[in-house]
Design a protein around this nucleic acid. Structure first.
Ligand SMILES: [Zn+2]
Ligand SMILES: [Zn+2]
Length: 685
DNA sequence: AGCACGCCGACT
DNA sequence: GTCGGCGTGCTC
């Protein structure tokens, strides 16, 4: 017997191995196996089992078979289809998707009263000399479900001793739950019921763009009303934080167990969820894009929340897939919901052409938008913003300030000759880091202490582009009594378990990078401000204005009502006017016109071809070979230009006005033999 | 991906 | 003469 195994190598085929008789019963398509390959042990995934091999040479034996976690045959086929669509090596893709181990179910014990209520109350009255025991008894009396030691500890502190004593006395017993009994779903609060009204307008199947400011309650309603017992449902959020918040919400308002699945979980936990899905023990999963590959046997419903978010595009690692597209392929005979408060221009275009359904609620928001013209404003915190902050804080309201730049100052410019100070190694502008009191390069990390212009020698320097830390300091200086919280990537990296919701609840002013524009309403928030949106508008990407719009809508979405202040030098920019007037069409029309004029999506399809080779001449030769190979397809090539992050890598941008030729052209580029990686439909350029 | 093979410039 | 650079191709 032969096993055809996909190894994690950048090749487009698998390798055959001999299945020893002892492993014949265990071998199965989708399982992970250990093999000896080129002198070392490796693991791969069985793509097929056959009687014989077409390989002429000797075959190595399969050394071990791992029954779990494993792909179901259908899940494997789907993963391979995605790899094929995105021109990724199948072995690389499937080995990345499948977790490696299955962690044991955490054996959380649960305790409940062992006696009836009257006996318990009588015992409690006699417990005057054992207050800890009494506290445990009271907690168990009040609880509607059994409690785990962890839950008791959270409420009462360390109660191991008193709990053990109560068990000894026969007042409390352990009840045999492996997992906490799923709490009965809470009814939706009335205000959520109205927010969920759009569910009635959904089609039965196909893809629907749900353009609604508030969507979570609707998702809970769909899960309650539309899910049949035999089917699975998948709910995606763009990032781990958002997935966790959505999971918490849906677990509260939906009956039955809901699993959480994302790449931040330990491998073993992911493996456990994977296997629970395969065994149909879990019907609903909330997660990030990697959850799309879970082995659901039937998937009637996929919800992609915040459809416009660029985190849905995998662009750091193969396969370079987009979660929305993959979701639509995955849920072909069910319902796929793309939910958003600020639709991607491309998605909305599909809806307006009738390719997908459009469900649009009245998105009028109670947020009042004010655009502040920054011409002549010396401080990054304008006078109108300062006044609004003072008013808000005086009225015990909360404020949030978004600054799209990290650190302290974006750049340092010579007052004498006007030129920016650059890193001599990388050529990029140097940023100022207050903590080190040095100029730092964001590309190579080098720091410099020489504060003088290399061109004219002048020591008169101007710091420009206030970053989030600088704005925070400015606000702390202006409002020393307010509790100010800085939220940036560094904070999340340093405290991965930080409960952001709690931290935010304790702050008066939250200053942060655009990550704070994601998420639901913050209680008590009355003022939101966007500082330096011009930096967002100036990003060299055809989607820059759309992204700025989406960030601003996201920021406004963190308030139920209140004021949004936008600081800009371009008060008439259509993206900002569109936010101010609540008129999405204004953004859409301007974007469509620009993209049609310059042949960008949705009027063309793009791909990036990465060329990796040590020598630049080699990359040049490859680039020439590719442009020769693509000549016949009538596509436009831009570049090659150096990759912004990866060393020894260039990329070519491919633009195809005919959407259907792009995959063919990309395949032709791959088959030139040049060492390439291809990113179809990139999300940033 | 890793590793061997093989071909051309420049060094004891 | 050999050493070592990397481009090419193969691994079940
Ligand atoms: Zn100068
Ligand atoms: Zn540098």
């Amino acid at each position: 017997m032969i096993a055809h195994v996909l190894l994690p190598l950048p090749v487009d085929h698998g390798f055959d191995f001999l299945v020893p008789a002892a492993l014949a019963a265990e071998i199965a398509v989708g399982r992970r196996v250990k093999v000896r390959f080129t002198g070392r042990d490796r693991t791969g995934i069985v793509a097929a089992v056959a009687a014989e091999s077409a390989h002429p040479g000797e075959l190595e034996p399969v050394l071990a078979v791992y029954p779990a976690p494993a792909f179901s045959p259908a899940a494997l086929e789907f993963a391979l289809e995605v790899a094929r669509d995105y021109l990724a090596p199948p072995g690389v893709a499937v080995n990345r998707i499948l977790p490696h181990r299955v962690a044991a179910q955490p054996r959380e014990r649960h305790f409940c009263l062992a006696v009836d209520l009257t006996t318990a109350v009588a015992a409690l009255e006699r417990m005057t000399r054992a207050p800890r025991q009494a506290a445990v008894m009271r907690a168990l009396l009040a609880a509607t479900t059994p409690l785990s030691p962890g839950q008791l500890r959270a409420a009462l502190g360390d109660v191991g001793r008193p709990l053990a004593r109560l068990v000894e006395l026969g007042l409390v017993k352990e009840c045999g739950h492996d997992r906490p009994p799923s709490s009965p779903a809470h009814p939706l609060p009335p205000e959520h019921e109205t927010q969920a009204a759009w569910v009635d307008a959904l089609p039965r199947s196909g893809t629907a763009l749900v353009y609604a400011r508030r969507r979570y309650a609707g998702y809970a309603r769909i899960l309650r009303e539309r899910l049949t017992p035999a089917s699975g449902a998948l709910v995606l959020a763009p990032e781990i934080l958002a997935a966790t918040a959505l999971h918490r919400f849906l677990a509260r308002y939906t009956p039955g167990p809901i699993a959480l699945y994302h790449s931040g979980l330990p491998d073993g936990v992911r493996g456990r969820v994977w296997e629970e899905v395969r065994a149909k023990k879990v019907q609903i999963v909330v997660g990030t894009r990697s959850a799309l590959f879970l082995p659901f046997s039937r998937l009637e419903l996929i919800i992609v929340d915040d459809e416009q978010d660029r985190s849905y595009k995998q662009d750091e690692m193969l396969p370079y897939y987009h979660a929305c597209t993959v979701a639509e392929n995955r849920g072909t005979d069910g319902l796929v919901i793309l939910g958003t408060a600020a639709p991607a221009v491309e998605t909305f275009q599909r809806a307006s052409q009738g390719d997908i359904a459009l469900v649009r609620t009245d998105n009028a928001s109670a947020v009042n938008v004010r655009i502040v013209d920054m011409k002549g404003e010396p401080s990054p915190v304008s006078t109108p913003l300062r006044d609004a902050l003072a008013r808000t804080l005086a009225a015990n309201g909360k404020a949030i300030v978004m600054v799209p730049r990290r650190g302290y100052f974006q750049a340092v410019i010579c007052k004498q000759c006007g030129r920016p100070l650059r890193c001599p190694h990388c050529g990029v502008n140097l940023a100022y880091d207050v903590n080190r009191a040095q100029l730092v390069c964001r590309v190579c990390g080098r720091a410099y202490s020489r504060f003088a212009c290399p061109h004219c020698g002048s020591r008169a320097l101007r710091f420009v582009g206030a970053g989030v830390e600088r704005v925070r300091d400015e606000i702390v200086h202006a409002f020393p009594d307010a509790r100010t919280l800085l939220v940036n990537g560094e904070l999340i990296a340093r405290y991965p378990d930080l409960d952001l919701e709690h931290a935010v609840a304790d702050a008066d002013v939250i200053v942060g990078t655009p990550m704070i524009a994601k998420g639901g309403p913050i209680p008590g928030l009355r003022l939101a401000a966007a500082i330096g949106v011009d930096a967002l508008l100036a990003v060299p990407d055809f989607r820059a204005a759309e992204r700025a719009y989406q960030h601003l809508i996201g920021l406004a979405g963190r308030m139920e009502d209140g004021e949004l202040i936008i600081q800009t030098n371009y008060p008439d920019h259509y993206a900002l006017r569109s936010v101010a007037t609540g008129n999405y069409e204004l953004l859409r029309e301007n974007e469509l016109a620009a993209r049609e004029a310059f042949s960008y999506p949705p009027f063309a399809r793009l791909a990036r071809i990465f060329l990796t080779a040590r020598s630049p001449t080699r990359r040049r030769v490859d680039a020439d070979r590719i442009s020769a190979a693509l000549a016949e397809f009538g596509v436009e090539l831009l570049g090659p230009s150096p990759h912004p992050r990866r060393a020894a890598t260039d990329f070519i941008l491919v633009k195809a006005k005919d959407a259907t030729v792009l995959p063919t052209a990309c395949r032709a580029a791959r088959d030139t033999g040049a060492r390439v990686e291809i990113d179809i439909d990139p999300d940033r350029i």
